[in-house]
């Protein structure tokens, strides 16, 4: 138990560190944008961008690390519900959060669902108790069939849409065939694409008896 606690602490600390670094770099970038506006230095922005992307990657790395406990499984419980401003909280959040109250974190402190949802929940519950098991299983099956059908329709539509848009809106920036032919040219000296008419320029030097141009 203790090991897990320590692990959690360590993880939270690391995450907080990374997030603070990221926040700082974003802050810097925003400052730069505000001060310099149009006349900004482009390579400077690029550098900032790379710093930020690097920090995001380290943050994700920490979260994805095998040793990190699954944070989703942990609950946060309020220890004290007070509307008065809390000194410690003010200090640690740089005067942004005076109290851990319903204004700031309405969802975390919720103890009951919305009244409308509650009503719906009650009616459904009542319906469920009345219903017969046969009809309910029949309804479940039908529901599954309909959902499957919709999923198929959506995925086929998506495939069509992807091939369409990739041809028209996004300009093609790389071609698999060209990659293959270039790598074949570097690796094996293959000068010709399959099916292409052979060019008159052949540079594969073959005969051993031929005087090599590099011989002095």
């Amino acid at each position: 138990m203790q090991r897990e606690d320590r692990l959690l602490e360590v993880t939270v600390d690391t995450v907080v560190q990374r997030v603070t670094d990221l926040k700082q770099s974003l802050g810097l970038l925003l400052q730069k944008l505000e001060h310099e506006g149009e006349s900004a230095d482009w390579p400077d922005y690029l550098q900032q961008y790379s710093v930020i992307s690097g920090q995001m990657i380290t943050l994700l790395k920490v979260l994805r690390n095998e040793k990190t406990p699954v944070l989703r499984n942990y609950l946060t419980l309020p220890l004290q519900l007070n509307a008065d401003p809390d000194e410690a909280l003010l200090r640690s959040t740089e005067n942004r959060v005076p109290a851990f109250s319903h204004d700031f974190v309405p969802d975390l402190l919720r103890t009951k669902p919305d009244p409308e949802l509650e009503m719906k929940f009650h009616t459904l519950n009542a319906k469920m108790n009345i219903m017969n098991s046969d009809t309910s299983s029949k309804q479940i099956n039908q529901h599954n069939k309909v959902v499957k059908h919709i999923v198929e329709m959506v995925s086929s539509a998506r495939d069509e849409w992807e091939t369409e848009t990739s041809r028209s809106s996004l300009p093609q920036t790389c071609s698999i065939n060209e990659t293959h032919s270039l790598l074949a040219a570097i690796g094996t000296g293959k000068q010709h694409q399959v099916g292409k008419a052979p060019s008159s320029i052949k540079t594969n030097i073959k005969a051993a008896g031929q005087m090599h141009p590099y011989r002095q």
């Binding site: 400077d44 690029l46 550098q47 790379s50 920036t173 790389c174």
Partner: peptide
Amino acid sequence: SVMDLSVSVLLSRLRGLCDNAD
């Protein structure tokens, strides 16, 4: 591989990612 027309775009992206961006 990248097509010749997109090389400048690729280079600016790489300049942002790699060392010595300036």
